[in-house]
Computed example of a mutant assay.
Amino acid sequence: MRIHTTVWGVGNPLLRDDAAGLEVVRLLDERKLSGFSLRRCELTPGNYLATLKRERPRRFLLIDASDMGLPPGTLRRFPLARVDDPSFTSHDLPLPQLLAGTLPPDCEAWVVAIQPQSVDFGIGLTPAAVQAAQECAARIAAGRLDEIAALE
C-alpha cells in the first residue's frame, strides 16, 4: 500500500505545549483527508516503524515542539536529514537512527517544529501553541508546507 502523506505527532501530553504535535494530528484527523496516515505517537514513535514501512509514504512529516529560541508559536520546517543532534528528541532513539532504512528512498521527509511557550507539567496548550497547531494543520491539509518558513 502506498500512502501519499504520513504525519507523526510526537510529544508528551502532560507537558503543556510539548503536545503541540499531537494537536496537529488531531486537527488533521478531524478533516478526514484522503491519502493521509496520521499517528499520535506521543513518546514512542518507534512503535510505528512497521506501519511506516508498510505505508511507504511519498511524504513523511514529523510534528514536534522544539525550543528554537523563537517567539512562542513560531513554526519552522527543515529536512529530516538535518536532524543530527542526538539531544533533539527524548523520544526513543535519535530520529536518524530510528528511521534509518524505514522510509522509501523517494520519500520527502520533513520535521515541522513548533516553538513552545511552556513545557511545564500540566494539560492543555497555551494560546500560542493552539494557534500554531491550527496554522500548521491548515497548511499541511492544503498542501502548502512550503509556506512554513525554513529553519535557518
Rank of each mutant, 00 (worst) to 15 (best):
V83H: 00
K53F: 12
E30C: 01
T89M: 01
D18L: 07
F88P: 03
L61P: 02
S90A: 13
S66K: 00
L27F: 07
V24K: 02
T51Y: 07
V25P: 00
T44W: 06
K32W: 08
V25A: 07
L38C: 06
L15A: 01
A81C: 10
L15R: 00
F36D: 02
G46W: 08
D29L: 11
G69C: 05
P57N: 06
G73S: 08
P71I: 09
D67Q: 06
S66G: 07
C41E: 07
F60Y: 14
C41I: 09
F60G: 09
G69W: 01
N47I: 06
Y48K: 12
R54K: 15
E30W: 00
R56H: 09
G35F: 09
F88K: 00
C41M: 09
R54C: 12
L70M: 13
L43N: 08
D18K: 03
T51F: 04
K53W: 13
S90Y: 10
Y48F: 15
P79G: 14
V24M: 04
I63C: 06
D18A: 05
F36L: 12
E55C: 02
S34M: 13
V24S: 00
F88R: 01
R26G: 12
G69F: 00
S34A: 15
L75G: 02
A50G: 14
T74P: 04
R82I: 11
R58F: 11
L33F: 02
V24W: 03
S37C: 02
A50F: 11
D17I: 00
L62G: 07
L43K: 11
F78D: 06
R76N: 04
P86C: 08
R56F: 10
S34V: 15
D29P: 05
L52Y: 03
V24R: 04
R59V: 15
S87Q: 06
T44G: 07
S37W: 05
K53Y: 13
L52G: 05
S66F: 04
L75S: 03
S66M: 08
P72N: 09
L75N: 09
E42G: 04
